[in-house]
Design a binder for these strands. Sequence first.
DNA 1: ATTTGCTCAGCTC
DNA 2: GAGCTGAGCAAAT
Length: 119
Amino acid sequence: MTLIVWDVEKNVVRKARREDLYEAIYMITQLIPLGRVTSYKNISEILGVNPRLIGQALKNNDKPIIIPCHRVIASNGYLKNYSRGGIVVKKKLLVLEGVIVKGEKVSRKYFIDLKKILS
DNA sequence: ATTTGCTCAGCTC
DNA sequence: GAGCTGAGCAAAT
């Protein structure tokens, strides 16, 4: 479960550096459309890494404005955490975008499969 | 709805 | 190098 990349400068295959991996995660996160959500797992499957790594990356995000990390939730539909304001803020943002959140859970129908977008 | 076991990158020492 | 910690997941209860 490790992201392998082609190093253009050194002309070799190697393990992705942390910054490379995080950068990839941020880019993919930006593909989630307004009013939709996806799971940590969905992103992790695209990159072939551990789902927990996605959470690590989003938590440590250095571009809080342009990265809609509130649209990334647990695969069971629950909101999980949000480093900037917690679940309360995460829920508010989603509701603002038209997602119906019952308690702390989002219906399946709002999930989008990013692998299909990338196909 | 809650508990339990699994997992692995990153961090600390 | 060993041990701990999760913005997780899935199955069982």
